[in-house]
Design a protein around this nucleic acid. Sequence first.
DNA 1: TTAAATCCCTACTGATTCACTTGGAATTAT
DNA 2: ATAATTCCAAGTGAATCAGTAGGGATTTAA
Lengths: 139, 139
Amino acid sequence: MRLSTKGRYGLKAMFELALHSGEGPIPLKDIAESQNISEHYLEQLVATLRRAGYVNSVRGAQGGYLLSKEPKNITVGDVIRCLEGQIAPAECVMKDAADCNRESYCVTQTVWRKIRDSVNEVIDNTTLQDMVDDHIKNH
Amino acid sequence: MRLSTKGRYGLKAMFELALHSGEGPIPLKDIAESQNISEHYLEQLVATLRRAGYVNSVRGAQGGYLLSKEPKNITVGDVIRCLEGQIAPAECVMKDAADCNRESYCVTQTVWRKIRDSVNEVIDNTTLQDMVDDHIKNH
DNA sequence: TTAAATCCCTACTGATTCACTTGGAATTAT
DNA sequence: ATAATTCCAAGTGAATCAGTAGGGATTTAA
């Protein structure tokens, strides 16, 4: 039940972008350094977020990345799901899942569904702006 | 964020034991067959649960496994944690975690903590008895 | 008393995923 | 022109997953 570094690093990076939202493009180098992450690895994660439309890029010197929307319109769920795929403890409670067994009703599925829903509730109701506010409040 | 087969199969097995609680030892063969799981693999999972004190075993012909406590006194959290280790989306919010970075406060940690707590709330408040009741209600 | 049914234990294994690294090409500000 | 950046594709060592293999020990039933 651990998140991989994709989701973890990705959210850190998105938080950094949100923190400097409106200040023009931020180069990955800065984020990688401040978060102590391999720049080349982070590049791959941000590429995924870019293709999904959450960040825009500016190439060339003085280029970098910026959020494509306001921080309040991007949720933690958007970011994590983009990088990690659907968040569900078992395949049988993922969207488009095939029926997991011949029986029409399975009790463990009920448990997995509850776990899935509780996690999704948290991540879909926290935006990057919430994280920024939280950060400011604590400094 | 997927659970491995350890936790998934393990919970299914414990549910079967709870369902037949009070009927004497149930052989693994029956559980493995009814849940369509490799018996030898399940054996390893149940061994872990036995060593942790959640099930007792009876050796020899007509032997098998039984819950060591009443179904209402074993939670889903007990079972999953026993087989999968601590449930937390990131190391920094696990018990005994070293400080994740030089800064005293980290925003992503707040998110991970919320996820961790919401999952634990679900699994610690669902017992095997709840699953049995749910099963009976739906048949 | 022997055979069958069961649990118990250790080790091995092929496939997949993780967390990167390598090595460049294309683009743009200075 | 040069340096700073993004963009792209492929390779890699280590770890984990989901078992399998091959036995040994214990108990019941015939």
